[in-house]
Nucleic acid binder design. Structure first.
Lengths: 217, 217
DNA sequence: ACCTGAACACCGTTCAAGT
DNA sequence: ACCTGAACACCGTTCAAGT
């Protein structure tokens, strides 16, 4: 039984198994993963020399692979941005616990380069200045990451201890609860970002190189 | 020596010790913390019954205590928002490794309620609709959390593998590197959010209850 | 190459025992 | 109340040994 005729393990099965445990328990251990896969821990190490950290990286790549920036290839950037953002959110809401394990380290995977390439190309075509494109992408993604983390957070609860909390209490009363809370925050944020980026783009267009055809100056 | 005449330990010293280890190593263990404090592990547990999780929560409270929303008490919201955001960033850049340990769980501390109260009151005074205030606060904070996580991330490196990466490469070449990268992304994002929130506010003012005094309607 | 079985250092937590 | 010392179950990782 030391070398079975049919492969018991490969990196894909290990990744999926770890993701199953994360979805079930919110975390995973190497012995737990091996048990889940019906093998010994040392067998897992044979396929994943980097150990637990590498398993987490593999899960990270698998989850973020569903992030899709291709909307920038065929839509105006104002429409593509929320599509990109929603695919980001969807990738992590499909594995609500995973974000807490994955968000703390940036993804360093070729498949994400394709996403950034589409977004950068779209923004460049729209006329965003070269030296701000990475900043725009990063700002949007920072908002997405924070939003994904926030999706798993419980509602804020405030006991009206101090008198100064009246406004906060009124706002909390008027705000949606449960699942709608995080969704509204995402919608409000992405709309604000798009509006703000549009202003930035208009300013640059007025002051700079690429004059609007209808411009008399 | 079982009960020293002078206290060796208290919750504050434990919190500070843990933060020192996090700043030094990026993480901490309970035995390591005890060693750092010159006591036995079980002594730490006497002061912190909740164990490691509670220590992390104590560190979280201590770090986030430096977040300050009081700018909303005496400044227009457009100026107060970046001040709040920068205090948030500063709290975590003072402990760069801490964010990775702390961001994955929301803070549930009375001192943060005061921050939210100031922000909510300021936004309400400015005329933001009650049912959107929590969403605005959450959206901003999500951006801050993502930005704080991003501060510790290394620069994106792209090897020009595919031809489709030309735009991305141009953007990366034109973007600032090192410390300026995350800072520019934060500035761009916060400016965009303010602009977008202002549009939202104007729309609401035009369509709704609070007419502008100079309005003839 | 692929898997087993046993081992090692270390971690989080507990608890009886001291003052 | 506050701290010690020893213990327990468990984790991440390694390595010689089998086919």
């Amino acid at each position: 039984m030391a070398r079975p005729r049919t492969r018991l393990l490969d990196r894909d099965r290990i990744t999926i198994g770890a993701l199953e445990l994360i979805d079930r328990d919110g975390d995973f251990t190497m012995p737990g993963l091996a048990r889940h896969l019906g093998v010994q821990v040392s067998s897992v190490y044979h396929h994943v020399p980097g150990g637990r950290n590498e398993v987490i990286e593999m899960v990270r790549v698998r989850v973020t692979n569903r992030v899709d920036g291709s909307a920038f290839d065929h839509l105006p950037w104002e429409e593509a941005l929320p599509v990109w953002g929603r695919s980001f959110l969807a990738a992590f809401t499909a594995h609500p616990f995973a974000i807490r394990l994955l968000a703390t380290e940036p993804v360093r995977d070729p498949s994400l380069i394709a996403v950034y390439s589409s977004v950068a190309a779209g923004l460049r075509r729209a006329g965003f200045p070269d030296d701000q494109i990475i900043a725009v992408i990063t700002a949007a993604e920072n908002f997405f990451v924070g939003s994904a983390l926030n999706m798993t957070a419980p509602d804020i609860m405030v006991t009206p201890s101090s008198d100064g909390d009246a406004d906060l209490l009124a706002a909390l009363r008027a705000a949606p609860h449960g699942a709608g809370r995080a969704k509204l925050a995402f919608d409000v944020g992405i709309r604000a970002l798009i509006g703000g980026f549009r202003d930035m783009l208009d300013e640059h267009r007025l002051s700079d190189h690429k004059p609007d055809p209808s411009d008399t100056g």
